[in-house]
Structures are given as structure tokens and as C-alpha cells.
Design a protein around this nucleic acid. Sequence first.
DNA 1: AGTAATTGGTTTCATAATGCAACTAAAAAT
DNA 2: ATTTTTAGTTGCATTATGAAACCAATTACT
Lengths: 157, 157
Amino acid sequence: MKAKSYAEMQCSIARTLEHVGSWWSLLIIRDAMMGARRFKDFEKSLGIAKNTLTNRLTKLVDIGIFEKVAVSENSAFEEYVLTKQGRDLAPVMIALAQWGDKWVPHEQGPSTEIIDADAGRKLSRIWPRRQDGEIIPLRKIRMKRAKGAPKKVWEEA
Amino acid sequence: MKAKSYAEMQCSIARTLEHVGSWWSLLIIRDAMMGARRFKDFEKSLGIAKNTLTNRLTKLVDIGIFEKVAVSENSAFEEYVLTKQGRDLAPVMIALAQWGDKWVPHEQGPSTEIIDADAGRKLSRIWPRRQDGEIIPLRKIRMKRAKGAPKKVWEEA
DNA sequence: AGTAATTGGTTTCATAATGCAACTAAAAAT
DNA sequence: ATTTTTAGTTGCATTATGAAACCAATTACT
């Protein structure tokens, strides 16, 4: 659920989750990345309630992650297509999928594969790198509030 | 909210979200990555209700993302520390933060900074690469169900 | 040592979000 | 012309969250 908004938090992650962090939203986007377009596609694939799906899709269109496009010249139906903004969530999806494969393996294998079409094989782990491609080890990475952002409670004193 | 589980879906992303996709969970983990440890730290930083925080932390401990550790030799209090599994969510956090900075900028700037401690500057965009470091363009990336996973509804016919 | 404040909860109740089933109008297929 | 599909909407039951009060144990203060 969600009754309280993250929108006013001074945090880039919170603001992203405000847009795509609701239950179902990321799975809707995942399905779109795997080829779903029509309302019924998402509904049947996810087993989500129709009213909830309507709410999610409407919001995702509002914030610019999907756009509604006519199915064809001569059809009155519309389908939901990811915008550039939506497609740009790919690194998030890849990171989520790879974490799941590593830490929550399923008896029946990965079951979602993310492929490099040129090399024809699974992507290697997505990980921060320096410009030259060198991998940055976790211990060298610091997450901190930006200058000007309010002090965290545990930083007082 | 969340009333229906993703656990049985044949999808790596769904299984990850089943663990960390509930409202608040990723923000709790973010706070931990930024230095929060004590119950009160999370509570005050997030403004989350105590019962909800208790539920989330208990679950996150159960599934191995946090562990409870004595604050010190002579203290009876415990604090919540990320496990290796939890720290391994770093790429997810980085991807979320960078997407937010790009698409949902805040008047007052990024407000969450992720730094390469050696280079002393912000991380460049996390993105899938080939082993040699070459960036893989989005159009070369395919997400698909693995062999054996059930066909997607839009693939029928 | 005795008292006050903090911590980490639990419990209760109101509210908000979701799940489900029934219903509907428009479009498409037969 | 009729049936089926699609994309919803509506209403109700259930579940999750938010807020406040309450509580026992621990820690800090005097």
C-alpha cells in the first residue's frame, strides 16, 4: 500500500520510488519491456485487479513513463508504449533481476533472461565503473546526502 | 500496499521485489547505506509508523538483508546492519538514484550523492557493459523469459 | 541510588489501498 | 446481426498503513 508520499523527501531514490515504487508498477514496466502493450496483456500476465491496473497505467502515463498510442491506423484501441524515460529504467530492471538471480534463486532457474543481442549471451553483472571501464569496488562507493540537504538524524552530535 | 504476493511468479525481478519491493523497504535499505543503524534512526529519518517499521525490519532480517547486532559489548540494545546480501543491492540503489536525478530533478539539486571515494567524484551512469568495459546500447538489450518459463500472454498465436 | 528520558517496541482504532466480482459501453470478430 | 473481446467502472470486503496511546527495559542525569 502506500498512504504517505515520498515526494517531499530530499532524496533522488525517494523521488524515483514515488514514481515507480508502488506495488505492481515495476512489474508493469517489466512486462512492457518484454513486449506487453495492451491493457489485457498486463492484466492477464500479472493477475492484477483491473481497477488497480487502470490506476497504475493512468499514473504512469501522467508522469511520462508510458504513452498511449493507437494500435493501428484503423483501430480505435490504444496500447501502452514505454517512452524514452520508461526505457531508461533498464538499468534498474537489470540490477533487480540480477540481484534476484543471485540471492533468491528459483528451483526452475532464472526464468527472466537479459541478453546482449550482439554477443548472444546473458549480460554480465551491472556494476558501477569508472569512465575507462574499471570496476569500482563496493568499499569505494559512498552514499551521502548532498551539501545543503538536511542532516540525517544519526549524524547529529 | 500489497495484498498479493509475487513469490510464485517465474521472474527474477518479481522475486526481488517480493523481498524489497514493499513500500518503505528500499528507503530503509537506502538509509542503512547512508549510515542509519538504530531503530530510532530509521523511524525519525523516514517518518514511518513504528508498527510498519517493526514489520519491515523483521522481514528484512528474516530474509537475510539485515542482521541484528549488539550496539556494543556492554549494551543491551541492538542495531540493524546490512549483510553482504543487503549491501549487494547497491547497483539497484545507484540505478534508482541516477534515474531520479535525470527524470525527476528537484529544485534543490540531487540531494543524494553517490561518490567514488578514490576519484572523489560522482559515479558516472551505471549501465550494462561487456566484459571488456564496452557499453551495451539499449537497442542491443533483450529481456525475455527463459526457456521453460511459461509463454507470455501476448506471445500466444 | 533515585529519577527522568530514551529506546524499541505492542496495541488499538481510523483510514487508505487493494482484490474481487459484477456490470457496462464500445469495438471487433463471426 | 449476434457474439465475443476489450477496456474500463462501481461497490463491497479485506488487508495494510498511519497515528496515537501505552508499556517495559535500558540508559542518562543529578
